[in-house]
């Protein structure tokens, strides 16, 4: 395999969408990004904005926040922060996608146990999930995944993220709770997403035209997993939008610091989830399929941002993004979701 050209500052490769590497070897993403000082100021502003949003929307019902909690390192750290720093009464919700590592489930129990947080495990019907994954990489299935989202995560990951988001919104409505929290870290999504207002009517409107495609590919259950029912929408007051917070976007913290912090709560590193996930055994297949189609690692954006701001060292970053999982090691995952790859 010949060596690909990469930005000398952030490690993004020449295959990354929209990249232009100049004669000094630096990419346009680096040139256009905030300086370290500006980033620190932005983080502080977002922190303040988030605190205000939290304070305005807490103490409304039995839970202050529904937390999308995978048991992975980032969402574990997020939950810790919400409980210890913001004193929020959280409901931690894990969606078992059929590939949740046993150790990750142990971690879910350990973390919520240590923090004294109510924990809910939701397992959607496996036949639905496996079909969803299979379709997500099909030609028609790609219509359901936003093109801009593919820059940040694989199609498999995105299909799951869309489902999980909908589950969280439904739970927030059921519990009359206005805050939904996630564990996105810097580079996975723009930092402006540390605090977002979500207008559910607008959100439903934007997905309306996809309803037939969803039903054709995913069957009747698609409605339940990707849309809100009218009676659910009735519980929503447009004057009081839901807020989605991603507290880790307000921090500059390394993987090592995150792991050190949650280890104290009983978190243990998984060994069956590949190099880039700490909860999902399907993640590597998502990476392999994404790389095959687009020739860049789906974690490149987030890893590049960490290198850019000195949170991850360059060598570690290169090790991560140059290691593309091989299909011949992903046999059982492919069988389970029912796809076949011709291994050239």
């Amino acid at each position: 395999m010949c060596e690909v050209l990469r930005c000398s500052k952030c490690v993004l490769s020449e295959s990354f969408p929209g990249i232009k590497i100049d004669k000094h070897g630096v990419c346009n993403y680096c040139r256009d990004s905030l300086s370290l000082d500006e980033m620190n100021t932005t983080r502080d502003e977002l922190k303040a904005k988030m605190s205000i949003a939290i304070d305005t929307n807490r103490n409304i019902s039995e839970y202050d926040a529904i937390v999308a909690f995978s048991g992975g390192k980032d969402s574990s750290f997020t939950l810790k922060m919400l409980v210890e720093k913001h004193d929020l009464n959280c409901l931690a919700v894990t969606v078992d996608n059929g590939f949740l590592s046993d150790k990750a489930l142990d971690n879910c129990r350990a973390i919520t146990g240590s923090l004294g947080v109510d924990f809910m495990l939701f397992t959607p019907a496996p036949d639905f999930m496996m079909n969803m994954y299979r379709q997500s990489v099909s030609k028609d299935g790609k219509k359901l995944i936003n093109r801009s989202a593919l820059k940040r995560a694989s199609a498999i990951c995105n299909s799951c993220i869309n489902l999980i988001n909908n589950v969280m919104v439904k739970l927030a409505l059921q519990h009359n709770c206005r805050i939904i929290a996630g564990g996105y870290i810097g580079g996975q999504i723009p930092s402006g997403a540390a605090v977002l207002n979500i207008d559910l009517l607008e959100r439903e409107g934007m997905k309306k035209h996809l309803k037939d495609t969803y039903q054709n590919l995913y069957g009747k259950k698609a409605d339940k997993f990707f849309y809100l029912r009218n009676d659910e929408l009735k519980k929503y007051n447009p004057d009081k939008p839901l807020i989605v917070i991603n507290p880790m976007l307000t921090l500059a913290i390394s993987e090592e610091q995150i792991i050190d912090s949650i280890k104290k709560l009983g978190w243990v590193k998984t060994t069956d989830t590949g190099m880039n996930s700490s909860n999902c055994k399907l993640n590597d297949l998502g990476i392999a399929l994404h790389y095959k189609e687009y020739q860049f690692h789906p974690y490149e954006a987030e890893i590049a941002e960490q290198v850019r701001y000195g949170i991850m060292d360059r060598q570690k970053a290169l090790d991560k993004i140059k290691t593309i999982p091989q299909f011949d090691k992903l046999d059982w995952q492919m069988k389970k979701i029912g796809i076949l790859i011709n291994n050239e």
Partner: peptide, 26 residues
Amino acid sequence: NFLFEFNDEVTEKTNLFTEGYMDSFG
């Protein structure tokens, strides 16, 4: 940034939101 090309089907009038080219993060 959104991994598509403008052509006869995707034009300057196309709503990139509702047609699935741009999400809220995009």
